[in-house]
Amino acid sequence: MKILLIGEFSRLHNSLKEGLLALGHEVVLVNNGDGFKNFPADISIRANFFKSKLGNIPRQIWFKIFKYDLGLLEHGIRFWMISKKLQHYDVVQFINESPIQTISKLELFLIKRIFKQNQKVFLLCCGIDYVTVNHMLQKKDRYSVMNAYFDDIPEAKKQYDYFFDFVDKPHQKIHKFLYKNIRGVIASDLDYVQPLLGNKKYLGIIANPINTDKITVIENKISDKINIFLGINTGNSFKKGVPFFECAIAIIQEKYPNRIEITITKDIPYTEYQKHFEKAHILLDQVYGFDQGFNALEAMAKGKVVFTGAETEFTNQYGLQEDEVAINALADVDYLVEKLSFLIENPSEIERIGKNAIQFIQKEHHYITQAEKYLEVWKTN
């Protein structure tokens, strides 16, 4: 099959592409690198001019006056320049409802062009879009990544501005067009299943593909200090519940000054981020999740103990009631301190959970197995 993947936010499409290539398919991945993360692409639509030193000055001035980013406009222009080449694919898949990340009118125009030039188009639900934001605003779940917004934390408000872009009228046009014309929508983990239940276009869940062949398993043996790593993306720190981790770390640092080493980074490229978590025994990922996101899964594949979403819904889905593969992180500092303290005082548990995590990823997230699941869905819809 000839397959076109458009957009990238977590390395999901890169791993899926690697699985599809291993199965003998032809795959092209188009994306803008997703900012500082700089994810790989076969065809890049990255904003080069407006993020250069020369282009950044008019970009900043324009944003102050008109309140939109010229870098986003450049994504759209670059996509338009290559869009005529993106035709006659057997399958096209968008990473979400805004895969190009440009201004709404141009996004819709370019999406329509992809539909005109190709027969089968599918959509992923693996982040923020109209369906998920609308669901969270109704507070249907026990908690969500919008908790800090609902708690009216002033410094958190700005981080949620873009959430509302997905429920305003310009984006609703994109959402309605997509759900009228796509063959179907696939959820990447349990956090996106509830918003899609009852939707006629929902095709089910396919867990994130992880390329375990590219990941070196590191024995999580404790010979000296226990290394705890927190990698912060300042643009979504409240969405991830980072302040709870920061408070817990401060307490743990004071409680076990000679037994731990703490590494905290902010807004570093994906490749540099990987180097840091390779050294870690424990990774602090997020507190507002029922299931794991991509960073957590890649760390688990390496044998790390990850504080992330691992709720009852997750353990029931995979039958893990007796095999702990991650620590279910909650928005509760005392709880986090208790869990961290237990691991520090019982380092053999770090090794045990790490081994369970490796086995779980190999069984449930292997990139070739997951690519086969995508192929089956694409062929039958």
Rank of each mutant, 00 (worst) to 15 (best):
D161C: 15
Y162K: 12
F163N: 10
D165I: 10
K169W: 14
K169Q: 15
K169Y: 12
P170C: 02
P170N: 03
H171D: 06
Q172L: 15
K173N: 10
K173Q: 15
I174E: 04
I174L: 04
I174T: 10
I174N: 05
H175F: 05
H175I: 14
K176Q: 14
K176R: 12
K176E: 12
F177Y: 09
F177G: 10
Y179T: 13
Y179N: 13
R183K: 05
R183H: 04
R183C: 06
R183E: 08
G184M: 00
V185Y: 00
V185G: 04
V185N: 00
V185L: 01
I186G: 11
A187W: 00
A187D: 03
S188R: 04
S188H: 03
D189R: 06
D189G: 10
D189I: 09
L190I: 11
Y192S: 03
Q194A: 14
P195K: 03
L196F: 00
L197C: 06
G198W: 00
N199T: 11
N199D: 09
K200M: 10
K201W: 00
Y202W: 01
Y202F: 02
Y202P: 12
L203S: 06
L203Y: 02
L203N: 05
I205D: 02
N208F: 08
P209R: 02
P209C: 06
I210F: 01
N211K: 07
N211E: 08
N211Y: 04
N211T: 08
T212N: 04
D213Q: 06
K214T: 09
K214Q: 06
K214R: 07
I215V: 03
T216A: 07
V217H: 01
N220Q: 01
K221E: 10
K221I: 07
I222Y: 02
I222P: 07
D224R: 08
D224G: 13
D224N: 12
D224H: 07
K225W: 07
I226F: 04
I226Y: 03
N227A: 15
N227D: 15
N227G: 10
N227I: 15
I228E: 05
F229I: 10
F229K: 12
F229G: 14
L230G: 11
L230W: 02
L230H: 05
L230Q: 12
G231E: 00
G231T: 03
I232T: 04
I232G: 05
T234H: 05
T234N: 02
G235K: 02
G235V: 11
N236G: 14
N236Q: 09
N236W: 05
S237F: 08
K240P: 15
K240S: 13
K240T: 14
G241Q: 08
V242W: 00
V242F: 02
P243Y: 04
P243E: 08
P243L: 05
F244S: 11
C247Y: 07
C247D: 13
C247S: 13
A248P: 09
I249A: 11
A250D: 10
A250P: 12
A250L: 11
A250R: 07
I251W: 00
I251N: 09
I252E: 01
I252L: 02
Q253N: 11
Q253V: 11
E254Q: 15
K255D: 11
Y256I: 10
I260G: 13
I260D: 13
I260Y: 06
E261H: 09
E261Q: 11
E261F: 05
I262S: 12
T263M: 09
T263L: 04
T263C: 13
T263W: 01
T265E: 01
T265H: 00
D267C: 00
I268A: 04
I268V: 06
P269W: 01
Y270M: 08
